[in-house]
């Protein structure tokens, strides 16, 4: 799967960038261990931190690589990026300007959590939720802080897939 994204890799520096953001390889063991550490250490503040960090990272990158795309075209670009980077499959086609539902039939975080820790009682996909919020905000020129994404079902909780409700506080 290739979205035709233009990575800037500088092997002499050991860095890779896309759309101004530094990209690094990490596996599901590390991703879930780090998330668990932050959830344990920050308690009720953790979900907001984990999600907002994704919004703040993804939004400027998508603006940088949008190449003029907006609305549905940009959301399709975001789906390609999400998959190419290994976060899973993501369907944003049902989102309109006022929000809607996004679905991830395969989520790296949910699958990784289930594989390494077993089922959760609460949703696992904070990064994907933030990614969706950031993509939606850029696609529809909405302040990212006004976009609310709630994971309504999660593979890590026993669902068949992960689903996210997207709403806008106008």
């Amino acid at each position: 799967m290739s979205g035709g994204f233009n990575y800037l890799t500088e092997l002499e520096k050991g860095t890779t960038h896309l759309g101004g953001q530094s990209l690094v390889f990490h596996c599901h063991f590390y991703n879930c261990q780090l998330q668990e550490a932050i959830e344990d250490g920050m308690g009720s503040a953790a979900p907001g931190v984990l999600t907002k960090a994704a919004v703040d990272t993804v939004s400027p990158q998508l603006r940088a690589i949008a190449d003029g795309a907006t609305g549905a075209d940009l959301l399709q670009r975001a789906e390609q990026l999400f998959a190419e980077l290994g976060f899973g499959a993501l369907s944003l086609g049902a989102l309109g300007p006022d929000g809607g539902e996004a679905v991830s039939p395969h989520s790296h975080y949910a699958m990784g959590w289930l594989a390494t820790r077993g089922p959760r009682e609460t949703p696992a996909c904070f990064f994907p939720a933030g990614f969706i919020a950031g993509a939606f905000a850029v696609a529809h020129s909405v302040d990212p802080a006004a976009v609310v994404v709630t994971e309504s079902r999660c593979f890590a909780m026993g669902a068949d897939d992960c689903a996210f409700t997207v709403a806008v506080n106008r």
Partner: peptide
């Protein structure tokens, strides 16, 4: 399962 993830996310 690898991700090509965001360094600024990990740092944040």
């Amino acid at each position: 399962y690898l991700t090509r993830h965001y360094a600024p996310y990990y740092n944040a």
